[in-house]
Structure formats: structure tokens, C-alpha cells
Simulated scan of single mutants.
Amino acid sequence: MDILVIATHLDDEVIGCGGAILKHVNEGDSVYVCFICGGTSVRYPNKDLVETRRSHGRKVAKLLGVKEIFFQDFPIIMLDTIPQLEIVTALEKVIFKIKPQVIYTHYSDDINSDHRSVYEATMVWCRPSKTPFLKKVLLYEIFGSNRSFNPNYYISIDKYVEQKLEALSLYTTEVDAQTRNLDTIKKVAQYRGAEINCEYAEGFILYRQIE
């Protein structure tokens, strides 16, 4: 099975579904990750720093067992200034190259405008008439950024939580920023685990599933 994770920023993929990625890989699935904001911006004006962050992303992908990563060059904290068609077109190339059966992406109710823009662009390609090969769409949780996130789909990550945290620690330019530190992310996984009677879990909103 081919899985595509669509992430706005480097580290979103680990925070939102790092455990799920590890589980998919362990079960023999092919996982791909597409980062939308991979370019320079007001926050990251230095091209050397941008490449440093991308090198972190490559290390994380290797640790998680991701088959291939795609870097788009949209600027951080500026997606709402970009015509949606540009983001939609960039996603089209990746989605139709992979033809994934499962997509993981952002949740709609998010205080981060970049996350909302990526959600909206992704949904264009989640219509059954556009992507008949796509059977499941899951929206992942970014703690501290999402509002009113009430999961209706869970994945136990008891076996994978430590490796998820190890992967997150590789993002040395991001870890400990706001609520994204390792301790917080582990507590979120523990809380979601308690909701389904396991030790650790990731929670998702099931947008659509076709059997």
C-alpha cells in the first residue's frame, strides 16, 4: 500500500503521524512525505538554514523508513498570500506520481494559516471523482495549533513512541519551540493512548474511508 503524508512544515509529519508512519513501514507499506513550505521566508531568510532544515528532514525520513520525500518551495508563514491554484498544482504532481491509497494531512480548524491553506489545497484532490485510487483520508493532530480536535480514529504507537521522539529530536532548529518539545508530544501520545486503553496513541479525524 502507498501512503502519502502531506505536511506544511518540516516536523509536522513527525508530530502529527510519526508513529503511524513507523507502523505503516513496519507493515510493509511504502510511505512518502511531501513538505509544502520548504523555501526561504521572513522566518528563514538564510538559504543555508533552509538547507540545514532540509537535511534534518532527510535524516528523519531515513530514521522513519520513508521511501521518498518531496520538498516544495513555498514560503513559511506566507501561504495565505499565494494563489491556492499554485499549491493545488504542486500537490497534483506528487499525488498523481504516487497514486496513494491513503493520505494523511492537516486538520481544518487550525490557528496556523499555513496549515489551513494546505488542508484546503489537499481537499481539492480528496474528491473521489478526482482521485479514484484514494481510499482513506486521515487528518492528523498538531497539538497547540489545532482547535476542537476530537479524534474518531486512533492508531496505537506503543511500539513506536520512542522512535517518534527520536525522530523529532533530529529537528534541532524546531524542537522545544512553543508546545512542540519532546516531553509535551509524549504526553499527548499518552493522553490519546488513555482514550483507547493503550499506553500511547495518535488520534486522527477520519475524513473519508472507502472499503
Score class of each variant (00 low, 15 high):
M1H: 08
C17F: 00
K23F: 04
V25R: 05
V31G: 06
Y32G: 10
F35K: 01
G38K: 00
G39Q: 10
R43M: 15
Y44A: 11
P45R: 06
N46K: 11
K47I: 15
T52A: 15
R53M: 13
R58H: 14
K62H: 11
K67W: 08
I69S: 07
I69G: 08
F74Y: 03
T81R: 13
E86M: 13
I87M: 06
A90C: 08
E92A: 10
E92R: 08
V94E: 06
F96W: 06
I98L: 06
T105V: 04
Y107F: 05
S108M: 09
D109G: 03
H115G: 05
V118P: 04
M123G: 05
P128F: 01
S129V: 07
T131I: 05
V137P: 03
Y140L: 02
R147Y: 13
S148V: 06
N152I: 07
I155L: 11
S156M: 03
V161T: 07
V161I: 08
K164Y: 06
E166M: 06
S169L: 07
L170R: 03
V175I: 12
D176C: 09
A177L: 15
Q178D: 14
T179N: 13
R180C: 14
T184A: 12
R192K: 09
A194L: 12
A194F: 10
E199K: 11
E199A: 12
Q209M: 11
